[in-house]
Design a protein around this nucleic acid. Structure first.
Lengths: 337, 337
DNA sequence: AACGTTTAGCTAAACGTTTCGTCAAGGGGG
DNA sequence: CCCCCTTGACGAAACGTTTAGCTAAACGTT
């Protein structure tokens, strides 16, 4: 593959002149500029980003580490981050941690090795694991989004998970539900915990209690929620509404309802956190709490750019407000059958 | 950030020894090996992939260019490719062409600049655009998957689109449908064309014809299919079945059916190419033709590895067989109402 | 004892850029 | 007319690795 030296030789100039022509950092006469450009075209020259990065000590790469790209929430987040990164002139180096803390740590080391300008991570671990992240970053600008507990020595950008749970739960209460169950996420994760606490707090404030039978844990994936849903629907008294901690588990819950020969919202109302593109295409359309994903992406890239620029101030925490999207999957409970 | 030189100094050895220790390419005594490892830990040293890539003339990066990551077919493909790339020791540099040929070309140049070992592209353009790709790659190993017409000077891996359309159409015919409409994809794209031809061929072979009113074009996105679906359902005679060219447009079609106050499969049967994770969660569950996405990913990575390894033989074309997944969205048509 | 061989480690020259300092030529002010 | 400043171009030294080639010590053979 052609190098700058080849271009220089063909154009009859020095490599310094070629470099100046490309970077525009110093003045080159039109005459030479044209000769250089012609040579570049003729040779099909593309500058070597590794050499340039090595010399300049930076790269135009940013790392992006997500637990699982097939979860539509993450898909959308990757989409938004990649778009905004591209607008800012960065290319995204994609890492998938597959929900494994050890893999996440490896990926951070990998990003460091590639001397990315900075990295955005959606942590997959519990609080302790998250607290480790800043140490692993070891100087690389690192911004944590979504599952990031407070107190990390990093810029963090999160949803107001308690408010999201509060919106969902209050909606169910306002429809008249009294027997409400939940399918929560993995207990050690920050987002699960917050959503669960939000849920319980609202109920307690209304003097309602939740039976142990009516609290199930899933792992944020479909299958676990199907099982949890089946168990909930067979418990007595059967809940009239289920608050589900994320979108994937909402699908599992819907499957469970169908398998039991019941229907939403006739027999049971269902609501979840995290909207997704097809929530409006289901029958019934699904009521959810939407996270402002693009705002999350924007804030993450913005903070990262500041840190890449050398900003040294204390870690900041940005908390974004969720929004209730009312569709058809929740309605008033039937009178006691 | 610490360099090899720092490590060498701290360990009291030369940089060559550090390099040997890390790469294992030549013998280092246990004594020194341990001193080096201790120094690495103490300094939090991570090798500079840019420097190493520059010197060795290769990188462990591969480029991946997709039209749109939010389409679940591409999401799954990115997922599988990234997993297999990681297994092979590569990191994925993600580019999104956003269905724009010009952007796709830019991204190929970008990948080239970063001296990726090779690139996998899902072309977003028509036949002419695709034919250009090998020229743009200019020596960089490039493998095209999915929307890749024959005749490209590249390894290509595609679904047997005609067979997919044939499976779907034959299924509708076998259920007794006579008035079948289609929502096809953008005409210039290879996959659209093949799917449309497959559809028409089957019908013609059975002596059936399709009215002009019953052929609509979408752009592979939801909204276009909703409109197309509304138009189809208002045409006379109303089709008893609709063959939809991809999964996103299936969603749009379902919306159209719902808006018309009709129901699937009672009033109209619906089938599409491209399965997706939630096809089984819809009511009714959706009948689709599944592409073997992971096999596509595997073959793409495999070919890419061969080319990266320097394989010079003629371009090869791998065609994968689709599979009909029968669920609930298709059934026999009602007797004439 | 002299000689090759092996071995463990080192020196130094690349890789393809960027950029600092230099230089020659030209122009303007005194 | 001389000097200095500006301008456009260049030479060369980095950046952090890898690796070919070297050195010196240790060893085994005659």
């Amino acid at each position: 593959m052609a190098t700058m030296k080849d271009v220089a030789k063909l154009a009859g100039v020095s490599v310094a002149t070629v470099s100046s022509t490309l970077s525009g950092r110093s003045f080159v006469s039109d005459e030479l500029k044209q000769r250089v450009e012609a040579a570049i075209r003729e040779l099909g020259y593309a500058p070597n980003a590794m050499a340039s990065g090595l010399k300049r000590g930076t790269s135009s790469l940013i790392g992006l580490i997500v637990p699982d790209i097939t979860n539509p929430f993450f898909t959308e987040l990757v989409h938004c981050i990649q778009r905004r990164a591209a607008e800012a002139g960065f290319v995204v180096l994609l890492g998938v941690s597959d929900d494994q803390v050890a893999r996440e740590a490896e990926l951070i080391a990998l990003m460091r090795s590639h001397r990315v300008a900075g990295t955005i991570v959606i942590p997959c671990g519990g609080e302790q694991d998250c607290m480790n992240l800043s140490r692993l970053a070891a100087g690389m600008p690192l911004v944590a989004a979504d599952n990031a507990p407070p107190g990390m020595a990093l810029d963090t950008i999160v949803l107001d998970n308690r408010m999201a749970a509060t919106l969902a739960t209050s909606h169910l209460l306002s429809l008249g539900h009294k027997i409400i169950a939940t399918i929560a996420g993995p207990p050690h994760r920050f987002v699960s915990h917050e959503r669960f606490v939000g849920f319980m707090t609202v109920l307690e404030s209304k003097g309602l209690s939740v039976g142990a039978d009516h609290v199930k844990r899933g792992d944020f994936h479909v299958a676990s929620a199907r099982e949890a849903g089946l168990a909930l629907l067979q418990s007595a008294p059967r809940p009239t509404a289920i608050f589900v901690a994320n979108n994937q588990m909402l699908i599992g819950t819907m499957q469970a309802v169908a398998e039991m020969g019941l229907s939403v919202p006739h027999d049971v109302s269902v609501i979840a956190i995290d909207d997704f593109p097809w929530a409006a295409a289901f029958t019934p359309t699904l009521t959810t709490v939407r996270q402002p994903i693009d705002a999350l992406a924007e804030a993450a890239i913005e903070r990262l750019k500041l840190r890449v620029g050398g900003l040294q101030e204390d870690p900041c925490r940005i908390v974004l407000a969720p929004e209730l999207v009312i569709r058809q999957s929740c309605r008033a409970p039937l009178e006691d059958a």
